[in-house]
Simulated assay, not measured.
Amino acid sequence: MAPVGVDFTVGARRLASVTRSLATWRFGLADVLSQACARLCPPDPGPDGLRVLSAPQHAVPAIIAHLPDHLIGSRQDYPRHYIDMGKSGAPDFAAYMARFSGKTRSTLRRKARKLESEAGGFHVSEHRTPREIERFLELALPLSARTYQARLLDAGLPDTPGARRVMLEAAEAGAMHCFLLHAGSQGGRRAIAYLVLPVEGRVLVYAHLGYDPDWARVSPGTVLQLEALERLYAEARFTHFDFTEGDGKHKAMFATNGVPCASFVLLKATPANRALLASRAGFDGAVAGVKALAARLGVLAGARSLIRG
């Protein structure tokens, strides 16, 4: 049980958030791919209801039927992106890279060369053991505070004793992979991007990716993602890389597959909750209308840059 914000967002900027006490029902990739989600039993709802994360769209009616006296709202539909790293997908890094067009492969190589040129070299470090994770957090937490995810969405690396304990316990069990991208030559390196990947069975879970906004022009997140994937493929240990809930260009570019999913809240049918969901629906409709108008006028890209700035 935890306080959950029903957010009012425009692009990457959260303008307002109304908190409700909700239980969370999160669907893992194995659940989604098994097609058995509709038969799963939800957790008991919290005082205000339930938050459902990344449920397969075909199962949504059955999920709602579990709580018929609750209101559905704040719904987001998207493809749940993932990389099939097994025999039926891209079984090794060479096969994975072969999926991209020649132009895209050239672009990815060019991004790495540009970073190397502007930074005077770069290095990627891996962090898995508890001691290595402590060092990772020492460098990544100050970096996370600078990212737009932390500043605008409160979605940076969690900096709490509980979150640290969870990461260290996972590392002790061999179930945590973290990567840092360092710009510069040896002796003068600076961490500019991080990637956090908990491991569930043989599935890598995309938990956190962030980068220093001062280095955004050289695509550090993209460079780090590709370098990490090459190393992870070399282990020949994992079956999937799960990009979890939400859509985005980064996820879509690196994924090999996707499953239609939805995230939403189920709130108790109180007058306050009815008003909240109606307000959120009206706000989303207004934002969609403004985006459509901006797209027709050819100013959408500039508006997105302004929102993230």
Results as ranks from 00 to 15, higher is better:
Ala12Ile: 10
Arg13Lys: 14
Ser21Lys: 09
Ser21Trp: 06
Ala23Arg: 07
Trp25Asn: 03
Trp25Phe: 13
Arg26Asn: 02
Leu29Ser: 06
Val32Gly: 09
Cys37Tyr: 11
Ala38Leu: 04
Leu40Thr: 06
Cys41Tyr: 02
Pro43Cys: 08
Asp44His: 12
Pro45Thr: 04
Gly46Asn: 09
Pro47Trp: 10
Asp48His: 01
Arg51Glu: 15
Leu53Asp: 02
Leu53Cys: 02
Pro56Asp: 15
Pro56Leu: 11
Pro56Tyr: 14
His58Gln: 13
His58Asn: 10
Leu67Gln: 08
His70Asn: 09
His70Tyr: 12
Leu71Ser: 15
Pro79Arg: 02
Gly86Leu: 12
Gly89Asn: 10
Ala94Thr: 15
Ala95Tyr: 15
Ala98Phe: 11
Ala98Val: 14
Ala98Leu: 04
Arg99Gly: 02
Ser101Phe: 13
Leu108Trp: 09
Arg109Phe: 09
Arg110Asn: 14
Lys111Val: 05
Glu116Tyr: 09
Glu116Asn: 14
Ala119Cys: 11
Phe122Ile: 08
His123Glu: 15
Val124Arg: 08
Val124Pro: 03
Arg128Tyr: 05
Thr129Ile: 11
Arg131Trp: 08
Ile133Lys: 07
Arg135Gly: 14
Leu137Phe: 04
Glu138Thr: 08
Glu138Leu: 06
Ala140Ser: 15
Leu141Gly: 00
Pro142Met: 10
Ala145Pro: 09
Arg146Gln: 10
Arg146Phe: 00
Thr147His: 06
Ala150Val: 05
Ala150Leu: 11
Leu152Tyr: 13
Leu152Asn: 14
Leu153Gly: 08
Leu153Pro: 01
Leu157Arg: 01
Pro161Asn: 11
Met167Glu: 02
Met167Gly: 02
Met167Asn: 01
Glu172Ile: 06
Met176Gln: 06
Met176Gly: 06
Leu181Met: 10
Ala183Met: 05
Ser185His: 05
Arg189Trp: 06
Arg190Met: 09
Ala191Met: 02
Ala191Tyr: 01
Val196Pro: 00
Leu197Gln: 06
Pro198Ala: 08
Val199Phe: 15
Val203Thr: 15
Val205Tyr: 00
Gly210Leu: 05
Gly210Cys: 13
Gly210Ile: 12
Tyr211Met: 11
Asp212Met: 10
Pro213Leu: 04
Pro213Gly: 03
Asp214Thr: 09
Ala216Thr: 08
Arg217Gly: 03
Ser219Ala: 12
Pro220Ser: 07
Pro220Glu: 04
Thr222Ile: 03
Thr222Tyr: 00
Ala228Ile: 07
Ala228Gln: 04
Glu230Phe: 01
Arg231Met: 06
Ala236Asp: 10
Thr239Arg: 04
Asp242Met: 05
Asp247Gln: 12
Ala252Val: 09
Ala262His: 07
Leu267Val: 07
Ala269Phe: 03
Thr270Asn: 14
Asn273Ala: 11
Leu276Ile: 05
Ala278Tyr: 00
Ala281Trp: 09
Asp284Asn: 03
Val287Lys: 07
Lys291Tyr: 13
Ala292Asp: 13
Leu293Thr: 13
Ala294Val: 12
Ala294Arg: 12
Leu297Pro: 01
Val299Cys: 08
Leu300Gly: 01
Leu300Gln: 02
Ala301Lys: 12
Ser305Glu: 13
Leu306Glu: 05
Arg308Lys: 13
Gly309Asn: 00
